[in-house]
Write a protein that binds this DNA or RNA. Sequence first.
DNA 1: TATTGTTATACTCTATAACTATA
DNA 2: TATAGTTATAGAGTATAACAATA
Lengths: 161, 161
Amino acid sequence: MNRSGLSEQQLQAYFTLTEVGNLLEQAVSSQLRADGDLSPVQFAVLATLGTSDATYRMTDLADRIVYSRSGFSYQAGQLEKRGLIAREPSPQDERSTLVTITAAGRELLARVMPGHVDVVRGVLFEAMPDGDVAVLQGVLGPVRDRLRAAPPRSARPRRRS
Amino acid sequence: MNRSGLSEQQLQAYFTLTEVGNLLEQAVSSQLRADGDLSPVQFAVLATLGTSDATYRMTDLADRIVYSRSGFSYQAGQLEKRGLIAREPSPQDERSTLVTITAAGRELLARVMPGHVDVVRGVLFEAMPDGDVAVLQGVLGPVRDRLRAAPPRSARPRRRS
DNA sequence: TATTGTTATACTCTATAACTATA
DNA sequence: TATAGTTATAGAGTATAACAATA
């Protein structure tokens, strides 16, 4: 434990995680742009919608993807303009908007996925022993779960006008 | 191994890593902005320069921080304007620019660090068993080393004019 | 010719605050 | 009064390509 409140080991692990994350995002970003004209965020939206079968509200998707509401509205607008997602008012609560992936969205996802997976393998898994995959998930999975359970950004009260 | 070339386990671990990285960056970004009016990239520059004693060339720093040259020139300009770093031509190779952190830069780094470390602990380490820290470093350290050894972005040949 | 770095340009992204509508 | 979502605005960040200087 150094004077800052994190051990040297923890600080190193944090920097390593950050650097790997940046490098990974960089590599993935090029591939997505080249193969599908998608940003990492847009890919995350399509992947989230295309993998889970669930429908999401705008706010929930924004929280999951880690975005401000307004920023997510912009991104959803971009994807909707290209016909990759659809928005419709929720029957239960007409304030809410439900987001679904379209057939075209699924097609693009399928078209982009193989190259994407190739990049991820090359960057992250090629030199990683198989056993380490479970170890990584074992360490970071609980962290993710705990963060998801924490009050999300959109829950922060807004200022009065 | 699913049809895409990554096992389901690998895909999950990749998504988890990405999500934790995003959440972490989000949290850290607020703290840095509030306490030092710094972006995560600007913090990374100061932290890299302030931690290692080495001097870096512009290109090497850009590669380390994972940035385009032009983008890094912009960021270096921002930091220099605030007196946090200094640039000078290299004596050995006058094409190169050496970057150093100033006393003011160190002061700002020291001022920002405690809160920064608090956030990182809260997000990443609070619920992580001590043993997992070494495990995480053990898994991601080699990945990072391998990526650093790979030809960096700036090595990509530029188009002829 | 190749490399280092900067800059002009054009664009994407992002957040804050204001706004509308529903609960 | 609180919540969901959009949008106007304004600014920050980013990359490409062109540029100048040195090797």
